[in-house]
Design a protein around this nucleic acid. Sequence first.
RNA 1: CGGGACGUGGCGCAGUCUGGUCAGCGCGCUUGCCUUGGGCGCAAGAGGCCCCCGGUUCAAAUCCGGGCGUCCCGACCA
Length: 571
Amino acid sequence: MLFSRMLIPTLKEDPAEAEAVSHKLLLRAGMIRKLASGIYNYLPLGLRVLRKVERLVREEMNRAGAQEVLLPAVQPGELWQESGRWQIYGKELLRFKDRHGRDCCFGPTHEEVITDLVRREVHSYRQLPLNLYQIQMKFRDEMRPRFGLIRGREFLMKDGYSFHASEADAETCYQDMYDAYNRIFQRCGLRFKVVEADSGPIGGSFSHEFMVLAETGEDVLASCLACDYAANLEKAEVVLAAANPGAAPATAAPEEVHTPEVRTVEEVAAFLNVSTADIVKTLIYETENGPVALLIRGDHEVNEVKVKNLLRVTDLTLAGAGRVRELTGAEVGFAGPVDLNLPIYADQAVAAMAAAVTGANKTDHHLVRVHPARDFQVTQTADLRTVTAQDRCPRCGGELTLLRGIEVGHIFKLGTKYSQALKAVFLDEAGQEQLIFMGCYGIGVSRIVAAAIEQGNDDQGMIFPMALAPFQVGLIPISLNDAATREKALELHAAMEAAGLEVLFDDRDERPGVKFKDCDLLGLPVRVVLGPKTLAKGMAEVRQRRSGETVMVPLEGLLSHLQEIIRQEMD
RNA sequence: CGGGACGUGGCGCAGUCUGGUCAGCGCGCUUGCCUUGGGCGCAAGAGGCCCCCGGUUCAAAUCCGGGCGUCCCGACCA
């Protein structure tokens, strides 16, 4: 491929609009251009990378026995009303009406559509299992698109759905997908970690996310240094460091103390000269089932996902100042569980406290020496907080570390949520009607492109793994005015293409420095430079982008040398 | 949806506070010469409704009001 014939508008400077490395580099390399917030054009080079990922995903999905389909991007609102998600989904779902005034939406995901297809076509256990996937543009009207391709509104996704006659069969398939995903991300050359994830109020006993490790990742995961336990922070379980529930040394009754203008945990700790771990913070939340109070130790953070799961609610928001006054009789900062007329849910660490500091439900006052069992009753005690690096692994007791990651894949067992809502049933061997068991498996294809760049870059630009690079080789002639160099370069270019190498021949009338810079920026794994000096010796210079390793290779052996490098890198 | 910032040739920015030789710089682009191993040099050019609408003023890129757009932080995210 000739550089001069391709649209590759590289930029010398970082665009003002980009913050994340991958975003900056994608723009600088001329791979994408923004059309609107969270919506991008893929230019030829960017599309090549995207297609590489796509092809790889397709290969592994097919190998795992899944079949490719293509479902519509625009979906009828009716289907979403039927599943109940028309109401639940919120503003992320882009809705509009067609010319007849019928509700439509641009698909953010395709459970409804695929389930509808299957319920129409599948009626017998003989047709199961079935594993269908597609690679398609999704649209989610994110309130805050960011970081270029990492969180766009329109993005390319591989979404797969499997259908089974039994739960056991669904689990087998889940495992197959788990393995396929591992192969996919390995082949993409990514450093990633598989974590246990929250499956949401949908239920389902398991769910895993595939996280590409990167400082800029939006997700935080807890990973055990000793065993292979890893979980999304919103899912990671907390184990009590030391069981201490029965302890009841609180001989003295709670005492009210005057704490003017002392609201936050830090202020209370400083004012009363206690540790933040001696304080209980009482958080008032609103839910669709009414307000609740949550008790969390002062040095801990509430985990709203855990709370939602425990309470089986989907709306969970901190109550406003007015509501707090109404419900506790005090300003924000002085709520406490004693004599509080609300359902109270306590984190397990709170239940183990012997003499806590709490709000007094009276502005500018706190209570000290509060004893959980003695001084107030809780509705339920549970694990409600977010783990920290100080916590121990829930599996082996080992040390935990917190890492950041970019979620590129998510698999989970759906169970019968959609088959129930949309009445997708089959007849079993006994002629009995049964609900189809489902699984659901997603991969952020365009996000992988960004994630790979987040992991592979230096101050000169991108560093692509061979499998994802837009071209495997960059061929740079030092001077096109030198007839011998030009001839030889053209000849080599033709030979490489004939041998099936993906090569970008920089035939532009530019100085060598410009070509080197661009070649580095684009992250092409191998660079071949040909100039009058090397040519005189019958050699070409071969440099690897990642290592910077440069060797002189005789022209006659060049092709096989390159093929060898590529073969090694593709493993 | 809260908080913050920004919007000036294709890109990156200065100018705005203090209204008037203020439409400017670097890169890119065009033409010519020169040059050819890390964004080379010289010369001559093209290119801007200063985001939009309204207001104040003799006069607005600059001041005021209202929009729109973009980015960042947070909340949110099957």
